[in-house]
């Protein structure tokens, strides 16, 4: 299982804070987003983290990993 977490406004957009993905082989972070979000396009400037470390969308993850998505924040 890959644990997928959505934070802040992404949690509202996706409709859940966390899901578990059953995977048979390693997936890229972008593929994790696609599977978790019904193939919705990856939003621009979204922040991604694997096991609490910043990641790009090409990093491969496997069972036991945690992938987290954070919305872009620019306001001040």
């Amino acid at each position: 299982m890959i644990t997928v977490k959505f934070f802040a406004s992404l949690r509202e957009q996706v409709g859940k804070g966390e899901i578990q993905l059953d995977v048979a082989e390693p997936l890229s972070v972008a593929q994790v987003w696609a599977q978790a979000c019904d193939n919705a396009p990856l939003p621009s400037h979204i922040l991604m983290a694997v096991n609490m470390e910043y990641s790009d969308q090409n990093r491969l993850v496997d069972a036991g990993d945690e992938v987290a998505f954070f919305p872009p924040v620019t306001g001040g």
């Binding site: 934070f7 949690r11 922040l47 609490m52 470390e53 910043y54």
Partner: peptide, 18 residues
Amino acid sequence: RLLLFDALSMQWRTLKLH
């Protein structure tokens, strides 16, 4: 490090940056 705060769920996260 990037400190992230979600006030609605009152959660803090710190991501390691590269």
